[in-house]
Amino acid sequence: MTRRAHGRAPLLAEGLFRTAALTCAAFVLLVMAGLFVVLLYRSRLSIHRFGWGFLWSTAWDPVRDNFGAASSIFGTIISTLIAMLIAVPLSFIIALFLVEVAHPRIARPVSYGIELLAAIPSIIYGMWGLFVLAPLMATYVQPEMQKVVGKLPLFSGPPMGIGVLTAGLVLALMVLPFITAVVRDVFALVPAVMKEAGYGLGATTWEVTRKVTVGYGMKGIVGGVFLGLGRAIGETMAVTFVIGNDHRIAASLFASGNSIASTLANEFTEASEPVYLSALVELGLILFVVTLVIQVLAQLWLARLARQAGTIA
């Protein structure tokens, strides 16, 4: 039997591999730090010129080089709010169906279908939203809404189809699978003993869900909502297609508006002046910091839950 020579070679290979692995891990750190530094550096012109006022200035005038983030921030918040108002209850009740109501033989394919909604690329939602949903909103949904609720400022103006409301609807559909998946997993984690105790007392499925499952899994649901929120805020293409891309703050949900991401997608390649470009990068910086905070909170929250679950189990 031949023995392989014990020289420096194996040690060297081990050292190299280890260093390469360490470098690649450090690369993740480097990219995250780099993202912040580079965005900050490239928005220095705009930060220097507009200061904190950038955050609440409604100006957006490329001709006079005067920019403010208010309308983009407003549109981002409103469209995300609409999306969450629709997606959270809907996800909750779909998760309830998947875990508590449906037979596993039905629940599995349904669950798979809902997850597939997450696999559809953003731009496909944009095409559907622009060419299919928006015309429907303009001809049927929005006029009906105006008829039913009357002339509230919230639903005033011509029903154009595209606008903040439609953007919110498309966003709701896009974050639905993410929130549903988290809530479903949380529901499934509730110990069977807890539920059985409820049923044993004669409670109905809904009562067990409301009083046992939800109380037990509330924290997990919050984590899921945070993850959905992070997705909705930064979603670009689908929103760009249907929000109308107009720099204004309107009271009506039917009016067109813009979001931070849609402004970037629309105007970035057209921006020729350094200040214009810098203002757009500063918008990106704001979006980055906000999603970073949301993500960090969500991860810390979920990690804490996992630790707690670990100590209980």
Partner: peptide, 18 residues
Amino acid sequence: NVMMGIPSIIIGLFVYAI
């Protein structure tokens, strides 16, 4: 984990800058 949740348009912006 956080990086997976950063909007892809921000990644585009970053690569544009570098």
